[in-house]
């Protein structure tokens, strides 16, 4: 459902309040997501084995010049590839998507690194906000004649820090605390600011 995804991504974007950059032209422009080519996935340990999930709908706004990065994720769009498991993960004890339909990351600061940035900011997941550092590489490339920004990286968060795993699921014996997020985003220069 690419059309649906694009539409809901747009709806999400309106929620991302990244002020338009003061810089115009050249590289000093904000970027938005090219959705079809981007992925946001996570890996968690279930019963000792690595399992994967993904978010299908999310919006990203990145403005290196202004030092801004904002991400909004539609928590209802997750998929772990198993309908029964999805029902549990979406429920009260885990993501509780009915109560907390969105997750967001808003960088307060971008620190330049050799191949990209470390974004220091606030991650809000399941209604709990914590400061996290999101490292990523960043480069722009010419793909089919248009400029595309490639943002990739991964980081590990602890699910319990965000209340993901209530009741019996607080135990990390069968579902590990560490969750690795992986992002591979293709961003386009934003138009019509």
């Amino acid at each position: 459902m690419p059309a649906f995804r694009a539409a809901s991504a747009l709806t999400l974007l309106t929620a991302v309040s990244v002020p338009a950059s003061a810089h115009a032209g050249g590289r000093a422009i904000p970027y938005t997501l090219l959705h079809a080519h981007s992925s946001l996935t996570y890996t968690f340990t279930q019963a000792g084995a690595a399992n994967h999930g993904r978010f299908n709908t999310f919006a990203v706004r990145f403005d290196p010049a202004a030092g801004r990065l904002a991400v909004v994720v539609d928590m209802r769009s997750f998929d772990t590839g198993d309908s029964q498991r999805n029902r549990i993960l979406g429920g009260k004890d885990f993501f509780d998507v009915a109560q907390y339909p969105q997750a967001r990351f808003t960088a307060r600061r971008l620190i330049r690194t050799a191949h990209g940035y470390r974004a220091v900011g606030a991650l809000t997941l399941r209604g709990i906000t914590r400061t996290v550092v999101i490292p990523f590489t960043w480069r722009t490339a010419d793909i089919d004649g248009r400029e595309v920004g490639l943002l990739t990286g991964r980081t590990t968060i602890r699910r319990l820090a965000f209340g993901i795993g209530q009741g019996q699921w607080h135990s990390t014996e069968w579902v590990g605390n560490a969750v690795t997020l992986r992002y591979a985003l293709e961003l386009l220069p934003a138009r019509g600011r």
């Binding site: 279930q46 019963a47 000792g48 084995a49 690595a50 399992n51 590839g81 198993d82």
Partner: peptide
């Protein structure tokens, strides 16, 4: 086939024998 990889007592993850 279900997409749940098998672990041996949380010590070692075994390869998937077939894809999902």
């Amino acid at each position: 086939a279900r997409g749940f990889p098998v672990s041996w007592f949380n010590l070692m993850q075994l390869p998937n024998l077939v894809s999902k």
